[in-house]
């Protein structure tokens, strides 16, 4: 079961809330302070992409965010209600050959996520597309 789950209407104003919650839970889980900015940015990009996808397809269903704390890693899943992403989309080139178009931000969002997150999986679940990402946590020091 997820440590914290969040569902929000697919509107741009709620993406910030998802970023703040994710960063707060990640901090508690023991994700390195230096990495929290990356967590914040990656979850924001994933949520922004989901909101854009729902908007483009007139879907009113919520964007799903699951924050899962494990012993060794902290995982975030961001789910939409759209079709599963195409394999080509899940492997954006590291550096775009030309400047991205102003309107084509979805791809740049994925490019940012893949640049930030080492453990990234772009797939699907029963409800739609799903982006899974995880970061290592610093284990509590145990007494010898």
């Amino acid at each position: 079961m997820a440590t914290v789950e969040l569902r929000f209407s697919p509107l741009p104003e709620h993406v910030r809330t998802a970023r703040l919650v994710a960063a707060a839970v990640a901090r508690r889980a023991g994700v390195d302070e230096a990495v929290l900015d990356e967590v914040r940015l990656a979850v924001g990009e994933a949520c922004t992409r989901a909101v854009a996808l729902h908007s483009a397809q007139n879907l009113s269903s919520p964007v799903r965010v699951a924050l899962v704390e494990d012993e060794k890693k902290f995982s975030i899943e961001v789910g939409d209600s759209g079709p599963p992403p195409q394999p080509a989309e899940s492997l954006p080139t590291e550096q775009p050959a030309s400047a991205p178009e102003e309107e084509g931000e979805g791809e740049m969002g994925l490019a940012v996520i893949s640049g930030l997150v080492d453990d990234l999986e772009v797939g699907a679940d029963d409800e739609g597309g799903l982006i899974r990402m995880s970061w290592p946590v610093i284990p509590d020091e145990e007494p010898v």
Partner: peptide, 16 residues
């Protein structure tokens, strides 16, 4: 304090 790809897109649009 925070910039994401949407912001980058706007800056690229401004540059164009």
């Amino acid at each position: 304090d925070f910039l994401d790809s949407t912001g980058l897109g706007v800056l690229v649009g401004g540059l164009k």
